[in-house]
């Protein structure tokens, strides 16, 4: 019974977020309510849960090895992570591929410092209604979705930095 209500609540939240994410424009503080919780395995194979990072600013970045703009963006995200992590910031790189082989190979050649999670069954991608590649979601310290970026073009990293600093200060 408890699991059913939880699932229903999650579904409702997902639908609410979906509609906002479809309509969402980059750069606007959309304040789309609580970010749906999820658990995924990281590179080492251990489970990582979004709610573990409550109290920190979290950037969830959806990427794939076949997506050129995603790969362009990653080193810049790594820089962002190194710079702001001590102040309570983390990035969760969610790889959306069914087969993680290419992604793991890529990470061997271009390692990043932030945790990379593997969404092999696309559950989290569906939960967050990912409609563009890459997609970046910024979650504040209270666990609420605040900013959404769809796609990546050179220059986006400026707004990422701006928004991260704003959320850290809160």
């Amino acid at each position: 019974m408890i699991t059913l209500t939880k699932t229903i609540r999650q579904a409702v939240r997902a639908v609410a977020i979906s509609s906002l994410l479809i309509a969402g424009t980059a750069y606007a503080d959309i304040n789309a309510g609580p970010a749906p919780d999820f658990t995924l395995k990281n590179q080492a194979g251990s489970n990582l849960r979004l709610s573990e990072f409550r109290g920190e600013v979290v950037m969830i970045n959806f990427w794939a090895s076949w997506c050129a703009p995603c790969l362009q963006e990653m080193p810049l995200l790594d820089e962002l992570y190194t710079q702001y992590q001590p102040m309570g910031f983390t990035i969760l790189g969610v790889n959306v591929e069914e087969d993680s082989t290419k992604a793991r190979q890529l990470l061997k050649n271009i390692p990043v410092n932030f945790p990379v999670l593997f969404d092999n069954s696309s559950d989290v991608s569906k939960l967050y209604n990912v409609v563009a590649m890459p997609s970046t979601v910024l979650v504040d310290r209270d666990g609420n979705i605040r900013y959404l970026h769809q796609g990546y073009k050179p220059g986006y990293e400026e707004s990422y930095q701006q928004q991260v600093r704003e959320l850290i200060k809160e």
């Binding site: 959806f62 794939a64 076949w66 997506c67 959306v96 591929e97 069914e98 087969d99 969404d119 696309s122 991608s125 569906k126 990912v130 409609v131 563009a132 590649m133 997609s135």
Partner: peptide
């Protein structure tokens, strides 16, 4: 609504 999700486009990106 797009019926092929962006995270399903691995083959198309090959």
């Amino acid at each position: 609504e797009p019926w092929v999700k962006p995270y399903e486009r691995a083959h198309l990106a090959d």
